[in-house]
């Protein structure tokens, strides 16, 4: 696997492990953008990340940040900071990582799937969507230029069991936020408290163009469920999506709007693809073979 030369991709922060994955005094190898890297942990929250060159020469030390249950690094010159997600700092939140899950597809397919409401009734049947309530109502998307993020607001969808804490169906209000090409999150209203939102993220570690690890930290309001239950719910949802993700063809993301045909419900995907196209990212993008 060759290391990508796409500086647009290289200049982003990406996760490379979850907190607790590397034992104290231990070490772990992984890969980002085709580059093998090594993570060493010398103290509780003290990680060192460096590249492992193929030829055995000494590596280059990379910047490290630990946040949102993850270890982040970058191979390039990060153009944007890690996103601010205030919910993770609220004291009564259940902040939980779910480890990481491997998915063989391009990182953008994961982001798009996370942004999509139209699949709830078919893939998360009787949980996030009901078979007889499939309609996606109009919502708004915006490119927030000050932070260079894509947002989808005023999203609503009927959900039979919106979260581990839900006992009955509800119209769930969603706000989606794409913080970078490789990270996305949602805010959804909490069943028991209309003034607050659960925050659920997906940070993607692109190992290669069609090989990813997905990290799903969440900060949620739920006094009752056990941590095992919260993780089980989130992983169950994600593994329902994973079947789809690994069976989309091509695995690379096509940006040509005539190659995959969107409809109104795909407004967030359309905005995301335009944004990717405008930033001229090449890593993990499908370039149609010349006929």
């Amino acid at each position: 696997m060759a290391v990508t030369t796409d500086s647009v991709a290289l200049n982003e922060w990406v996760p490379c492990g979850w907190l607790g994955q590397v034992p104290l005094g231990g070490q772990m190898d992984t890969v980002i953008f085709g580059q093998k890297i090594s993570i060493t942990r010398s103290d509780d929250d003290c990680y060192r990340v460096e590249t492992l060159p193929e030829d055995g020469s000494s590596g280059r030390q990379l910047p490290v940040q630990t946040r949102y249950c993850c270890i982040f690094t970058t191979l390039g010159e990060a153009k944007r900071p890690l996103p601010e997600i205030a919910e993770f700092d609220e004291p009564d939140r259940r902040v939980t990582g779910c480890g990481s899950v491997g998915v063989n597809t391009s990182p953008y397919r994961l982001v798009e799937n996370f942004l999509d409401m139209a699949h709830f009734s078919f893939i998360h049947t009787d949980i996030l969507g009901a078979p007889d309530r499939t309609e996606v109502l109009a919502y708004k998307t915006e490119h927030r230029k000050d932070v260079d993020e894509i947002w989808a607001i005023d999203c609503t969808f009927y959900q039979p069991a919106a979260s581990k804490a839900s006992a009955t169906g509800q119209m769930t209000q969603y706000v989606y936020r794409v913080m970078s090409p490789f990270s996305v999150m949602l805010y959804k209203n909490v069943h028991c408290d209309p003034t607050r939102n659960d925050a659920i993220c997906v940070f993607i570690q692109p190992k290669g163009e069609t090989e990813c690890l997905a990290y799903m930290p969440m900060a949620i309001v739920d006094e009752n469920s056990s941590t095992a239950d919260l993780i089980d719910f989130q992983q169950s949802i994600f593994l329902q999506d994973r079947v789809i993700l690994e069976n989309q063809r091509p695995a690379l993301l096509p940006l040509d709007p005539t190659y995959e045909l969107p409809t109104r419900a795909d407004a967030s995907s359309i905005a995301y693809r335009r944004w990717l196209k405008a930033m001229n990212i090449k890593f993990g993008i499908y370039e149609k073979q010349a006929a």
């Binding site: 139209a118 009734s121 078919f122 499939t134 309609e135 409809t263 109104r264 419900a265």
Partner: peptide, 19 residues
């Protein structure tokens, strides 16, 4: 399976459940 779009035997899409 993803979004339930329905295709007739001639290939034409005839239903989009989201709309």
């Amino acid at each position: 399976i993803y979004h339930g779009w329905a295709y007739r035997t001639d290939g034409q899409c005839v239903e989009i459940p989201a709309h």
